[in-house]
Write a protein that binds this DNA or RNA. Sequence first.
DNA 1: CTAAGATATGAATCGATATTCATATTTTGA
DNA 2: TCAAAATATGAATATCGATTCATATCTTAG
Lengths: 208, 208
Amino acid sequence: MTTRNLSRKEREKQRQRQDIIDAGLELFSEKGYHNVAMQEIAEKAEFAVGTIYNFFPTKADLYETIVRQKIDLFEQAFEKAIQTATDEIDQLRNYIRAKSETFRSNISFVRLMVAESRGVSFSIKGGLTREMRNRYYRFLERIACIFENGIRHKRFKPIASAFQLAAALDSTVNTFLLLWVEMPGIHPFPEDPDIILNIFFHSLLDTT
Amino acid sequence: MTTRNLSRKEREKQRQRQDIIDAGLELFSEKGYHNVAMQEIAEKAEFAVGTIYNFFPTKADLYETIVRQKIDLFEQAFEKAIQTATDEIDQLRNYIRAKSETFRSNISFVRLMVAESRGVSFSIKGGLTREMRNRYYRFLERIACIFENGIRHKRFKPIASAFQLAAALDSTVNTFLLLWVEMPGIHPFPEDPDIILNIFFHSLLDTT
DNA sequence: CTAAGATATGAATCGATATTCATATTTTGA
DNA sequence: TCAAAATATGAATATCGATTCATATCTTAG
């Protein structure tokens, strides 16, 4: 009973913690780190300011927790997507699909990243900035591997370095997603990942 | 003599104003809008705080002025580059070259944009955000026109909508430039614009 | 049921900094 | 050279908001 009691309590604590995180995410993504007061977060999460400080030592810490949690989620989703495919083309398809799904179900986080990607709030402490950058490069390397393999397997032509191809593809996907986030009516995100991939798969030049 | 005197004075005023702008740009790009105090800008520009307020009514106003000035410069450079070419391929080449040159000679501004693109500082007043977004879309439309023409002239194949092609190309160029800004040693920006264009011009798929 | 311990509360504190304005300095025109 | 007029100065003001902590409330275990 004691353990079970503790466990219930633990779970309750986690739920509260997550409520604060959710409130923070929503507010930060709407107004940006510096334009949100702890007071507001407290109100949104239905706690007193002081209580928030029982969970997170500082505002910056709360922010970092939010970002890390989401980034972890994103990375996991992408990695899983890539592993659930055999040939390189399918890997790219899956990664685009995963990215689109994860974006769609985490729009407020995407907004947060768009709003202050590497900016201000991160540079409070230099640490998170560097960490995020490194994580992103590692991710690009991961995509680059797919191109690397594709080239080795003679499925892809080496029209650029694997890393450049990865950067080009990922930035294109990002831009399409951002266009969709900002103007869903005018720039819907293509349901079929091949619409994006075709830009790379087919030659733009008409040599007829 | 009076007019000349006034003119000298005017020029002097402009120089001072520009000094403040330059100091602001450098500091904002290093530390982000919210982490720079007017005091610092004053010191860097070798003025007293009060003097800065003789030129700019508020900190936000100074910031907006800095951003607008640079954006204008960028837009002009791109437009000129596009106009200095006849066929579509050369237009794209020139635009990439112009973008790379303008980036290279305005790194601190680029840093500023990277750091807080649409974020915090803009949202002080809602206005600048929307303006920037609209300007960017107009610019993308401008690039899309090139693709549009290329497709009409049968130089390009319609592998995606003109706007999508524009978004894909521009985001790729941006990413390459950012990689270069962050790690010039590891990811040098390709001197030859064709290295980027080839990603789009040639088919990635090896159909041999 | 009760007291010790745990937790939540939010008013008060404290630091930071944008902005103002009384004063000092410089420039102008006679 | 001199006194308006213009301009520059920076100490003082005013506001904002992160963080603290004395107090109130709730939980637990005996």
